[in-house]
Design a protein around this nucleic acid. Structure first.
Lengths: 223, 223, 223, 223
DNA sequence: AATGAATGAGGATTCATTCAT
DNA sequence: TATGAATGAATCCTCATTCAT
């Protein structure tokens, strides 16, 4: 007995798809990817297990879609705030914005890490292509925005910079989200303070440094 | 088929342990962590499944030991080459050395990524502590070496720098080791060239930039 | 190969559950609990391994359900036959009925033995409670029936008597179901005749004796 | 490197065997049979794992020997105390002695239960024979003692009585040693008091009743 | 006789995915 | 389109036992 009204037109289908994405994202806040199973997602979404597969061919595809959605959300916010700088941004301010927007999405970097480790391992060509196209488009757009915000960036350097920052964030999330036991080790054992990263603080410092590096290379021959 | 005689003294036991570590490491070159099972490791080592558990209490402990060993190997080489610079290193040369030593260990950064995602999730306190102590010690030592190589680094800044570089590498490996299918997408689709990272090249450029950033911050108030 | 259509309503689900219970019970006739695995049960039931877990959360829960079902069946028959005595039963007749009904269920007492040794070790509170409630209810009801059948039993003594008889049967089954090898020893070696119990015969004699004991204590102060 | 002095004569061998039996018995006080492994026994005995197999061919044989030893100890004590009655025992006193001697050995009845379920399943013919011979001898001897203590017992009825009592005890131990969770259910849920057996109390009452039954059957034709 | 390193059989359970209804 | 019953692959670890030393 189907409890839910059928989604007969595209709008309803998109709406249902959205419900699933949000269910998955919600579960991901508090659980590791492996701990989340499709039954949970379906339950949170108020749908049946089989229904999930009407919208996403695999678990990986589902979370890749979550990834895409969150990525767009982050990039949108990021660009909006960067635009607010009005072309007079400096390294520190840009770094601040990146940290602030990411701090509001603590699970996003964790999702990034899974992207390359798990999600991309089990999808089909069109899905991979679509995702990469999206990512490419946004990276390029972000690059343009960065170039507009940071006067010292030369044309074309923005996208590269965006990718590097993205790369650094990918690593940073892993170091700043240790397993509970490791967190305990760091907290209790003397000398382990070096590992007691704070994401926001590190992000701020490292991205600033990085941008300063870029600025000071601007007169050298390109990377 | 390696040695079959029983390991009756400590030396032989260490040797056998080594055989297991190498078997695991070898399998890891071509397989994801999840795909590798203890039976495989035992088989490659020429031992029985149960024997593995005489040397390592869990699969995670085994790969953590692999990690420790490879880490030490890399740090040793890294420091040796950095020492060769004789205190007159610049950002670019240091970056070169990091890239070169890592290029000889293409699976190492992948192992790093697993460290924080999987390995540290399922080990006990003493194991975690021992590993973190090792890591701490080597990071600090590397920091000292970096300070010696890069004159612009202030005392105490070396370890921080080492950690940042390590962080960046962690992220970089994920981007430069895409799944086969994703690699295909990148290769075949137009415009995807931006994602066609070459690990060595990116590493070189980004680490250099980063170090330049550090150099140019040296007169500002600390991070 | 039993029904293969899906169990979509409660009736069909109960039917399928029943098929599983019967498969487990059938296997238990000829195998020890440890020797039986879920794959066997599934196979006999004509289902897949995973399907078993849709109906029973653990192996223990499955066999506890078998136990409950067989218990009810036995108690039903027992009470029916005891009721047939019409309140003029004596020790011997009651003992006969117990023996006769149990003789038709040679594996039941073996299942009882496992109940306390294995099944109750690995179940959750609600399951344990439900089973104990069932057992309690039937023991009490049997007690009432016994009181009706055996005039010398005082009010309230029936349940106690039922439990004692149950206790004795529990022990008796262990002695009358020796391992094949032990059976061989008993058969071939001289003087071992003492151990050559016949369940029915022993049950008859011992329960009779026990009830006579109760009868003759009736004038003394309570047990 | 053998840590222990070698047992070169029979006396030393027996002594070492004894150490193993006591280690096994000690571990059995607080652990289920399945939880105990040979490595533990060896460790407690201060010997190596392999050494255990010089004295007992299998785990089952080891615990069967434990059983034999404890059985003899119990029977010895039982007979001694029964002899103290001086031929003027009544049902109640005999029951008291049985309960008292068993109460000092809370793990013994648990061992009995395992005997028929596990131990006898995996031993060889000579071992089974030897054990059964021992058991037979002691049952018969206990029978004689019982006949001496209980005047109403007819010649030859003692052994039968001993076996019946043994049978009852076998069942009783299972009901009086519920799994922790079941114990909780019994304690917390209303009406479950019926299952809150006390071994000693039940034993006393039931054995007494049983013996009274025997006494009152003495004029009827034999069981 | 003693050791302990080596062996390898053995099994319940989860869960992504399919498909009959 | 929705459901949820059915599937079955996939795997780490224990531990009794053996046997080379």
């Amino acid at each position: 007995m189907p409890l839910k009204q059928r989604a007969v037109n595209d709008e309803q289908r998109l709406e249902r798809r959205q419900v699933l994405l949000e269910a998955a994202w919600q579960l991901f806040q508090d659980n590791s990817y492996e701990k989340i199973n499709i039954a949970d997602v379906a339950h949170v979404a108020g749908l049946a297990k089989g229904t999930v597969y009407l919208y996403f061919p695999t678990k990986e595809a589902l979370f890749l879609a979550v990834q895409a959605e969150q990525l767009v959300g982050w990039f949108d916010e990021l660009e909006q705030e960067l635009s607010g700088l009005g072309g007079v941004g400096d390294a520190s301010r840009v770094a601040s914005i990146i940290c602030a927007t990411l701090s509001r999405r603590p699970a996003l970097t964790r999702l990034f890490a899974i992207l390359h480790t798990v999600l991309e391992q089990n999808i089909d060509y069109p899905t991979a292509l679509a995702f990469k196209k999206l990512l490419l488009e946004r990276i390029l757009r972000l690059g343009t925005t960065l170039e507009a915000s940071l006067p010292f960036l030369q044309p074309g350097q923005g996208a590269q910079t965006a990718l590097w920052i993205y790369t650094f964030l990918l690593g940073l999330q892993q170091l700043t989200n240790p397993a509970p036991l490791v967190r305990e080790v760091i907290a209790h054992e003397p000398g382990m303070g070096v590992f007691a990263f704070d994401f926001c603080h590190e992000c701020q410092a490292a991205v600033t440094t990085f941008l300063i590096g870029l600025e000071n290379r601007k007169n050298e021959n390109g990377l």
